[in-house]
Amino acid sequence: MIDRAIIEAGLFRCRKKALPPDVCRYLMENRKKIPAKKPLNEVRFVVFDTETTGFDLKTDKIISIGAIALTAQRIEVGDSFEVLVRQEKVGDREAVSVHGLLRKDIASGINEISAVTAFLDYIGNSVLVAQHAGFDITMVNRVLWKNFGIRLFNDVVDTASLAKRLEKGPYYNLAHKAGEYRLDNLCERYNIRLHDRHTSAGDAYLTAQLFQRLLAKGKKSGIDTAGSLLMT
């Protein structure tokens, strides 16, 4: 209901030309939720990952977003997305080296607002998928709220939770053994070769392969519609 209100408020501002066209199109596309009965084969998923200057939700910033779409069980290489974000402050050296991004790369990126706008345009009303999705969603939402007074309205799947649900059932305590559900461990468990780790696009691609396998696994336990996957 709150989503609904924010969307309508946003669209109102759109009519006053107070928001960029890409953002308005995103709002229009998200007025309707994906029907629960929609077969998963007809759903477009966008698997994404953000790299940030650190892990503080309040002060750290996005330095890149990578994403790839999965439709009808297929990872579509051509339907992918990657932006580097120019940030004035890139945080401490350590985080920068982990992400494999050099200062000059970050300086060569586009500004934060253009980056998230392009991302909104790319995702439309697809179901978003990410490893430990909460963090990435929050990071993107912060930029959206600050600049446009909106947030992401898409349905979201967290691959770590989905893996846990498929492997252990819905009531397993995830906090108990969190390491088991780190991306590295999941990839190893599902025979996915690690490449380009710690770049947002590389991680998004790995997460997509993981999600693809999880969907195949889920299909066997009857998860074949948007509703059964999203548990709505």
């Binding site: 290489v77 997305f81 990657e82 696009a201």
Partner: peptide, 11 residues
């Protein structure tokens, strides 16, 4: 524009 990182990996 598709992601360079991913396209290069597949290539």
């Amino acid at each position: 524009m598709p992601s360079n990182t991913i396209v290069e990996r597949v290539a």
